[in-house]
Computed example of a mutant assay.
Amino acid sequence: MKIIAIQKSALDGMKNELEALLELTENATRKYSPIFKGEQWLDNQEVCLMMSITKRTLQTYKDKGLLPYSRLNRKNYYKRSDVQALLETGHPYNINDDGFTDE
């Protein structure tokens, strides 16, 4: 183990810079938290695992407007609450073009 000795003033300077960086980070996070409102966002893989569906089925849900999503940097994200709502209503497996299920 190495022991490095530095002056107290240098240590205090580093501490102050780290505290300033932490404050900047917290301010940035606070600025965007109203956008998310505590909502958890899931990616394609997480939604497929949660719903036990394939990527193709997920694409069909998106195409039919059954599952809203947001796109960020060419990647789709889904609100956990929207996925939960779709799970609670049941999987619309065989969906016609008119939006009704085949039974």
Rank of each mutant, 00 (worst) to 15 (best):
N27E: 13
V83W: 00
G90P: 02
L86P: 05
E39K: 09
I35V: 13
T57R: 11
L21Y: 01
V83I: 07
N96T: 11
L72I: 14
S70E: 13
F36M: 14
M50S: 12
E39V: 10
S33H: 05
N96F: 01
N27G: 06
W41A: 13
K75M: 04
E23H: 09
T54C: 05
V83D: 00
E17T: 08
Y77H: 08
L49G: 14
M50F: 02
K62S: 13
S70Y: 10
L87R: 04
N76C: 12
E17F: 00
Y77P: 01
I95H: 05
P34W: 08
T29S: 06
R30Q: 13
R80I: 06
A20R: 06
A20H: 01
E26Y: 05
D97N: 03
K55L: 12
D97R: 02
K62H: 06
V47S: 03
L21M: 04
Q59K: 10
Q59I: 08
K31Q: 08
D97V: 03
K15M: 04
V47A: 03
D43A: 08
K37D: 14
P34L: 08
N44L: 08
K31P: 00
R74G: 02
T29D: 09
D12H: 00
T60K: 09
R80D: 01
N96M: 06
R74I: 04
T54S: 15
Q45R: 15
L42R: 00
E88T: 07
L21I: 00
G90H: 01
T54K: 12
S70Q: 12
S70F: 12
A28D: 04
E23F: 06
N76A: 10
Q59D: 06
S81N: 10
L72Q: 15
N16C: 03
V83L: 01
Y78T: 08
N73V: 11
T54E: 09
F36D: 13
R30S: 15
D97H: 00
S70I: 12
T60A: 07
R74A: 09
A28S: 05
G90N: 01
A85D: 07
R71L: 11
I53A: 10
E23G: 01
Y32L: 08
N16Y: 01
T25H: 07
Y77T: 04
Y61R: 06
T29K: 08
K31M: 10
D82M: 02
K62Y: 01
L49R: 14
K37P: 03
I95N: 04
M51W: 07
P68D: 02
E26S: 13
T57L: 13
M14Y: 03
I53W: 07
Y77M: 03
E26L: 10
R80Q: 11
G38K: 09
L24S: 07
S52I: 14
L18R: 12
L49H: 15
L67Q: 09
L86C: 04
C48N: 11
E88K: 15
L72T: 14
D63G: 07
E26R: 15
F36N: 13
S52G: 11
T89G: 15
D82Q: 03
M14C: 06
Y93A: 09
E88Y: 06
G38Y: 04
R30G: 05
P92A: 07
